[in-house]
């Protein structure tokens, strides 16, 4: 048994180095001179270059990464807050009330999880265009406000179902109305699930590329994903270390959130996935 564990550790370590190597290489390359990046596979730069970050940050033309980061925060934070709030209300409705058509509506909601976005993206785009929402962040805010991503509603429904109803009833006796139950009883207990919702939505929206590509067209409104792609097109063939430095910078917030809240990721996936 001891030996088996030892072998497990060895195999796991070898694999984890293999799987982490690309990311570590990305980080180390951002500190290497351009000439050294592809001439050695070593993770330790022979000679440290510090200016790739400062120069990469300048971006292309007159727009730098400060703008891209500001834009991304302006997009991501409202989306995260709106998603958490709307998904919680909807999940509460599904988890705690009986109403006509509930079974059918719940089935419809779950089935949207499996509906390919490709089949609705064109009319949605035309609709938002009709509203004059192109080149604004409304195509991101409004779906979040309307709890369009059923994944989050489902995650919260599953979680709320696990909270005993006795608590609701005790609160009713204490004179709470249904909204009071949600705010005073359920939100404190559902906090871990809400954190899961927020970090998933943060990372997904932060990395969102396709939607940003079709809705945002002026460079001054670009998110980091669009900005990075523009830098790649302009500098990708020469200033490798700058492109790599900016790649590191764009994934850093996601990695930070992941390490701060990694247990919520695992729980979020396990809550929805297993019962799906």
């Amino acid at each position: 048994m001891r030996r088996r564990k030892l072998w497990t550790v060895i195999v796991l370590s070898v694999f984890s180095i293999l799987f982490l190597y690309p990311l570590l290489w990305l980080i180390s390359s951002s500190f290497k001179p351009n000439a050294d990046i592809f001439s050695s596979i070593s993770l330790w730069p022979r000679e440290f270059v510090w200016d790739a970050y400062a120069r990469g940050w300048q971006g292309v033309g007159r727009t730098n990464f400060s703008t891209f980061f500001g834009n991304t925060l302006l997009l991501v934070i409202p989306v995260v807050v709106l998603t958490a709030a709307s998904s919680l209300l909807v999940a509460y409705g599904f988890a705690r009330f009986k109403f006509r058509g509930k079974g059918l509506l719940f089935t419809l909601m779950i089935s949207t999880l499996m509906l390919p976005d490709a089949v609705i993206m064109i009319p949605r785009y035309l609709l938002f265009k009709e509203f004059n929402w192109l080149n604004t962040y409304l195509p991101f805010y409004v779906p979040a406000l309307l709890a369009v991503n059923a994944f989050f509603v489902f995650l919260l429904v599953q979680f709320l179902r696990g909270i005993p109803r006795d608590l609701d009833e005790a609160a009713v006796i204490d004179g709470c109305n249904s909204f009071g139950i949600l705010v005073r009883v359920l939100i404190p207990l559902a906090a871990p699930a809400l954190v899961s919702v927020c970090i998933f939505q943060f990372i997904w929206t932060w990395n969102e590329f396709f939607t940003a590509l079709i809705y945002i067209n002026s460079v001054s409104k670009y998110t980091v994903a669009l900005g990075l792609r523009m830098v790649l097109d302009n500098e990708g063939a020469v200033n490798w270390n700058q492109v790599m430095a900016m790649s590191v910078v764009t994934i850093l917030p996601c990695i930070a959130v992941f390490f701060m809240a990694q247990k919520y990721f695992v729980e979020g996936i396990a809550t929805t996935g297993l019962k799906g």
């Binding site: 705690r96 006509r100 509930k102 509506l105 009319p123 949605r124 369009v148 009833e169």
Partner: peptide
Amino acid sequence: RKPGSLVAYLYISPWLIGFIVLTLVPF
């Protein structure tokens, strides 16, 4: 507590509107 249907619809209304306008109609 009589779980009033109307209240329930109020809670799920964001999704219901979103589903109709941003999913069903585009579909």
